[in-house]
Amino acid sequence: MTDSITSVLSQIRAYQSQLGQATGIGGDVARSDAIQGLQGAIQAPGQAGAASGPSFSETLRGAINGVSAAQEKSGALQRAFELGEPGADLARVMVASQQSQVAFRATVEVRNRLVQAYQDVMNMPL
């Protein structure tokens, strides 16, 4: 199980680095709301008690919306490629497809972890 978790984490890091490179070169790929929301949630060490960051539910909602947007973008690029539009080449379609796939897998892994944590708490003896 730890190998699959390590694999998902490495895919997330690769996805983030691809986004960073893409925005640094041409600005073609915008950073997802999920990543921006997570960066906003990080606080400086002296601000540990500050309530200025988004709540957990807002961060989770932003991450899910980011995954949904990545899947919609991938689907739109696939349709454009199938219709033969000039701006949709195969490389862009495949990259968008892989990005949405990695984002979805990461979301499923987070969901599985939350369910497991809930089950662990519910099975604790009183």
Results as ranks from 00 to 15, higher is better:
Q21M: 14
F81W: 05
Q11D: 12
S17I: 12
V29A: 10
Q39V: 06
N123S: 15
G37E: 00
G24E: 15
Q18G: 13
P45K: 06
L83H: 01
A63K: 02
A69S: 06
P45Q: 13
K73D: 15
R61M: 12
L9I: 09
G49I: 14
Y15K: 02
A70V: 03
S4M: 05
R105Q: 07
A63L: 03
S32H: 11
A22Q: 07
A80Y: 08
S57I: 13
G20A: 15
Q116Y: 01
V29G: 00
P125K: 07
Q101K: 08
L83T: 01
A50D: 10
F104L: 13
M122K: 12
A48K: 12
M124E: 07
Q119C: 03
R61Q: 10
Q43G: 05
D33E: 15
L90S: 13
S7A: 09
Q101L: 14
G66Y: 02
A34D: 04
A96R: 00
D120H: 04
A80I: 04
I42P: 00
F104E: 05
L60Q: 03
P45W: 10
Q78K: 12
A41F: 04
A44E: 14
Q16K: 06
A48G: 03
S10D: 13
E82S: 12
P86N: 00
A44G: 08
M122V: 07
A91F: 11
I25Y: 11
F104W: 01
D120T: 12
Q101F: 09
L90N: 10
M1Q: 02
Q39L: 13
F104H: 11
I35N: 08
L77M: 06
Q11V: 00
